[in-house]
């Protein structure tokens, strides 16, 4: 064996490895250094640095873009846990900027207005790892083929309504189970149906799981929501508007962290769910016109 002591950065194992370290944890959206410190203090495993949380992006309308680098830097300086930031779908220059700033993970996110309606960012070109959204297995595998090192089911961001997060997680789990039950010669047609590369389809069929970590996102607002997503099989949760749009963010953040660790212990979930104050106001998905549903963005 030839020894290679020269450090290699940006390898797939190093990229997916950070996601492995975040498992069982909660990643929280923050818009100020103060919120980032509250999140870190509550036990968040990472924060997502934003200018606006999805609920406010939804309310403001217009074009939503990458946050101001000064804002992201301020949040990076405030905490010692990993800091993620979002670029628009397909906006590879926003991604280059985020890498130049030194964020720990880039979220190529449907929460922002897409910059390219055909192509996502070629994520293999970056040292910084990417997390991408998905609603089903085909979308998940297309993102992995482009170099995503972590996935999150999309849900419907900024709603405080967990129904879409559940739908996407169940879809993913059902499709993985379906692939696992197929005979080898059926996988070619399955790859065609999923519009995903055959090699990745085959890997999932053989291993019965995704090749990268998958978190749940988009509508989680309570400790019980987080625990339900964990019981449905995700590796951890993103909480966007749910914390800092609620009455007592510090307490709710801490409760969601504990419920995510002890997701299969109803006694703990009951205890931490007490007296949390007002949750964020939820939105019914049917009240959102189809064109305004963020989950429809990305292909």
């Amino acid at each position: 064996m030839t020894e290679n002591t020269t450090p290699q950065t940006g390898t797939l194992r190093v990229k997916t490895g950070l996601a492995e370290m975040l498992k069982g944890g909660v990643i929280m959206d923050v818009v100020t250094a103060e919120q980032a410190r509250i999140a870190e203090d509550a036990g968040a495993v990472a924060v997502m640095a934003l200018e606006r949380v999805p609920a406010d992006i939804r309310a403001a309308g217009g074009v939503a873009r990458m946050a101001d680098p000064a804002k992201i830097q301020e949040i990076m300086d405030a905490v010692s846990i990993p800091v993620m930031a979002k670029c628009r779908i397909g906006h590879f220059v926003e991604a280059q900027v985020l890498q130049a700033i030194g964020v720990d993970y880039i979220d190529e996110s449907e929460v922002l207005t897409p910059a390219d309606e055909e192509h996502h960012v070629d994520k293999w070109q970056f040292t910084v790892p990417f997390v991408c959204g998905c609603r089903d297995l085909g979308e998940a595998l297309r993102r992995i083929a482009e170099g995503a090192a972590m996935l999150r089911t999309k849900g419907e961001p900024g709603t405080g309504n967990v129904v879409e997060a559940v739908r996407h997680m169940r879809t993913l789990t059902d499709q993985i189970a379906w692939l696992k039950g197929l005979r080898p010669e059926q996988l070619y047609a399955a790859a065609k149906d999923l519009q995903a590369p055959y090699e990745l389809v085959k890997w999932v069929a053989e291993n019965g799981k995704l090749p990268v970590v998958n978190f749940s996102a988009g509508g989680i607002a309570t400790p019980a929501d987080a625990a339900m997503m964990m019981q449905l099989g995700c590796d951890g949760v993103f909480v966007g508007s749910g914390i800092f749009k609620s009455g007592d963010p510090a307490k709710r953040a801490r409760a969601i962290v504990e419920a995510t660790t002890h997701y299969d212990d109803p006694d703990v979930i009951a205890r931490v769910s007490r007296d949390l104050g007002e949750p964020m106001v939820g939105i019914n998905i049917s009240e959102i016109p189809e064109a305004e549903r963020m989950q429809e963005r990305g292909w």
């Binding site: 064996m1 020894e3 290679n4 002591t5 020269t6 450090p7 290699q8 950065t9 940006g10 390898t11 194992r13 190093v14 490895g17 950070l18 370290m21 990993p82 890498q99 030194g102 964020v103 720990d104 993970y105 040292t127 910084v128 790892p129």
Partner: peptide, 27 residues
């Protein structure tokens, strides 16, 4: 440093038979 500085490299691990060990260092 940060995630961009995360790396892997071979290590000489004392008492370990079978040659170098691949060290994966993440933040």
């Amino acid at each position: 440093g940060r995630q961009v500085d995360s790396f892997e490299a071979d290590l000489e691990f004392k008492h370990l038979p079978g040659g170098p060990f691949r060290g994966v260092f993440i933040r």
